[in-house]
Amino acid sequence: MKVFVLDPHLIYRRGVTSCLGDADGITGVAEAGSVREAWQQEGLRDAAVVVVDHGVPGALEFIRQVREATGARVLVCSGRGDETEVVAAVTAGALGYICKDTLTPESLVAAVHAAATGSGVMAPELLGTLLRNISRAHEEVLAPRGLSLTRLNPREQQVMRLVADGHPIREVAEQLRYSERTIKNVIHDVVTKLNVRTRSQAVAHAVREGLI
């Protein structure tokens, strides 16, 4: 797997490139400090995953364009994790959003590998932010017009929101007053409906597509 790193800060960019270059399963890492420079690099066209700093001028448009032009999965890495930035990046097509402040070499490599398989990646401290914004958009904009963001029924939404918040099946069952078997069946139905393979992929897909 080849990776491309777009970050305006040379020292940080070289650190990320070094970490990824030493990781198993990564065969090459290219880099750039600006969007203009990135488009001039052959490594961008070959990359399976592109790691983008949200602070790069033109980052959101770059995310949209690189997804369309190369099909690469985009992972945004930011030092701020601002609420509007998270929502904007995901809306633009980013598959994940991680924070520099809490990043380690191990978590960076894990996030890149997860993104490469199509799994959504979201820093735990940011997941609630994303869910609140999606919920607000549904309640304030769509619901009054009789519209909905979701293909999931209300029970499936309830279950997946709790799972996304990190609750184990036992706690989900207790909160919703269902049996654990029922919760497992609901999750299985959602996994099947969303055409993914695992519970974590179902959560990532549901968050990314605004289904919960």
Rank of each mutant, 00 (worst) to 15 (best):
Asn133Cys: 12
Gly146Asn: 01
Arg181Pro: 00
Glu125Arg: 09
Lys184Pro: 01
Ile183Trp: 00
Val163Pro: 03
Glu139His: 13
Val196Ser: 00
Val186Asn: 03
Gly128Thr: 07
Ile134Lys: 08
Arg136Tyr: 14
Asn153Met: 11
Leu176Trp: 01
Arg136Glu: 13
Val186Thr: 12
Ala114Thr: 01
Val121Arg: 04
Ser135Pro: 04
Thr198Gly: 02
Leu162Ser: 03
Arg170Phe: 07
Glu174Val: 00
Leu126Ile: 06
Thr129Trp: 05
Lys193Pro: 03
Val172Cys: 09
Ile187Met: 14
His205Pro: 00
Ala137Ser: 12
Arg170Val: 15
His138Arg: 10
Lys193Tyr: 02
Pro144Gly: 01
Gly120Lys: 02
Leu126Arg: 02
Gly166Ala: 06
Ala114Ser: 09
Glu156Trp: 05
Gly120Leu: 09
Ala115Glu: 07
Ala173Arg: 03
Ser148Ala: 12
Arg136Pro: 11
Leu149Tyr: 13
Arg177Lys: 13
Leu142Asn: 07
Lys193Thr: 00
Arg155Ala: 14
Ala143Asn: 05
Val163Gly: 02
His113Tyr: 01
Gly166Thr: 07
Gln201Ser: 02
Ile169Trp: 07
Leu126Tyr: 06
Tyr178Leu: 15
Val159Ser: 06
Leu131Arg: 01
Pro124Ile: 08
Ala173Tyr: 03
Ala114Ile: 02
Leu152Pro: 00
Arg161Pro: 02
Arg136Ala: 15
Val121Asp: 03
Arg181Cys: 11
Glu180Ile: 12
Ser119Gln: 13
Ala114Gln: 01
Ser200Ala: 14
Leu130Glu: 01
Val203Ser: 08
Ala202His: 03
Gly128Leu: 09
Ser135Trp: 02
Thr192Val: 15
Pro144Thr: 00
His113Ala: 04
Thr150Ser: 14
Arg170Lys: 10
Asn133Pro: 01
Pro144Met: 01
Glu180Gln: 11
Pro154Gly: 07
Ala115Pro: 04
Asp189Trp: 08
Gly120Thr: 13
Glu125Thr: 12
Ala137Met: 07
Thr117Asn: 09
His138Cys: 12
Tyr178Asn: 06
Val159His: 09
Arg132Gly: 12
Leu149Lys: 11
Thr182Lys: 00
Thr150Val: 02
Asn195Ala: 12
Arg177Gly: 10
Gln175His: 11
Ser148Met: 11
Ala115Phe: 02
Ile183Gln: 04
Arg181Glu: 11
Arg199His: 04
Val196His: 05
Ala143Cys: 07
Lys184Ser: 08
Glu156Asn: 07
Asn153Ser: 03
Ala123Trp: 06
Leu152Arg: 00
Gly146Arg: 06
Leu149Asp: 00
Ile134Cys: 04
Leu127Thr: 11
Gln157Gly: 13
Ala143Leu: 11
Arg199Pro: 04
Leu142Thr: 05
Pro124Ser: 06
Glu156Gln: 15
Gly120Cys: 12
Leu126Trp: 02
Gly146Glu: 08
Ala116Cys: 06
Val141Trp: 08
Ala143Trp: 01
His167Trp: 15
Arg161His: 10
Ala164Glu: 10
Arg197Glu: 15
Asp165Ile: 12
Val172Leu: 04
Arg132Leu: 14
Pro124Val: 04
Glu174Gly: 14
Arg155Trp: 08
Ser119Gly: 12
Asn133Ile: 06
His113Lys: 14
Asn133Arg: 13
Met160Tyr: 10
